[in-house]
């Protein structure tokens, strides 16, 4: 069985094996194989192309940008998404502006081990896809399955544009697949993860699995939730979302992010501005609480949306 984490490692292995322009740069990713072992054995297999970086997120991303200008395809690992804020300037102001300003694209992939895990705490748990999506010039993806982790990372490496790759740490070991596909839906297309007629749940990342569990729970009561996995938050597949809402008339958006702004706010905004007439009820959202992500498992498990809070929200949306 292949885990989500192993899929990320295998995608990097394949990228290194098939494209001589690819190299990996990040903290502890060389012989040590990375804090999560997402680059295990790759330094030995590809000598000189899997490079340990100093503790310098700004320099890591800045160097990737310069390398990309010269035609390389760097994949950089932020040890945790939370630390990418130390490289924020290079990501949003340099990588994100390069193509518009100069006509020269910036094919870098910035891997962000994202999201909460039990015991992670305030600085090893964040979901930052919304802030990167806010700036123009970046592609922001949030694979929620083993298959997507693999194919979307390979697709990201092949893209000419900078990609912020939000891989979810909670899924690293929890998700497993029999095998990896060669092809998948392209970045920019959402997937209907479960069909249903009563309400649409739009979600991404680890919340896909909580949402699917909530849908199973409601199915026992005879209600069918349609679950849309966004897969990429920028570009955001508004068409698939609107088509689903057209079928169900109700929208619940679930995100592990903080509530102010964010992907859930963007989805609600798009559906209400572009599909107001499709709605039979006011849209709802379920987000994490508006505090830093707590450390203790008993607090953390309440801070984030879960199948039961999602199911409760869905029941309210359905007037149950």
């Amino acid at each position: 069985m292949i885990t989500y984490l192993e899929a990320i490692r295998l995608a990097q292995q394949k990228a290194l094996a098939t494209d001589p322009r690819v190299f990996l740069y990040g903290q502890d990713i060389g012989n040590f194989g990375g804090a999560f072992k997402a680059t295990k054995n790759l330094a030995a297999e590809f000598p000189g192309r899997v490079l340990d970086a100093p503790l310098s997120e700004d320099a890591i991303v800045g160097m990737a940008i310069g390398a990309a200008i010269e035609g390389a395809r760097p994949i950089v690992e932020m040890q945790f998404a939370d630390f990418s804020t130390c490289g924020l300037n290079q990501i949003v102001n340099h990588a994100g502006t390069l193509f518009y300003r100069t006509g020269v694209p910036c094919p870098i992939v910035v891997r962000l081990p994202s999201g909460g895990t039990s015991g992670g705490g305030p600085f090893h748990s964040q979901s930052l896809e919304a802030i990167y999506a806010h700036w123009p010039g970046l592609v922001v993806v949030t694979p929620a399955t083993v298959e997507d982790a693999y194919t979307m990372l390979l697709e990201a490496v092949a893209l000419d544009d900078p990609v912020v790759f939000c891989e979810h740490k909670f899924l690293y070991y929890h998700l497993k697949a029999e095998s990896l596909p060669d092809t998948s839906l392209p970045i920019g297309k959402a997937r209907i993860a479960r069909t249903g007629r009563d309400a649409t749940v739009v979600t991404h990342g680890a919340m896909l699995h909580e949402s699917l569990a909530a849908a199973t729970e409601l199915a026992e009561d005879g209600y069918q939730l349609e679950v849309v996995d966004l897969r990429s938050v920028k570009p955001l597949d508004t068409d698939t979302v609107l088509a689903s809402v057209a079928r169900t008339g109700r929208l619940l958006v679930v995100s592990e992010e903080w509530p102010w702004g964010g992907v859930s706010a963007e989805v609600v905004s798009r559906v209400t501005t572009e599909g107001f007439g499709l709605l039979d009820a006011a849209p709802m959202r379920v987000n994490a609480k508006d505090t830093p992500v707590p450390y203790h498992p008993d607090l953390w498990s309440v801070h984030r949306p879960t199948a039961s809070t999602i199911a409760a929200a869905a029941r309210r949306l359905l007037d149950l």
Partner: peptide
């Protein structure tokens, strides 16, 4: 940038790692 003439951003110091990265790619 394609001619090695990088286009600065306003954030001072940002071009130091960018040039370093360009050099790293050339070396690779």
């Amino acid at each position: 940038p394609r001619e090695g003439y990088y286009a600065m951003i306003s954030h001072l110091g940002a071009m130091v790692p960018a040039v370093a990265g360009g050099l790293l790619a050339r070396r690779l």
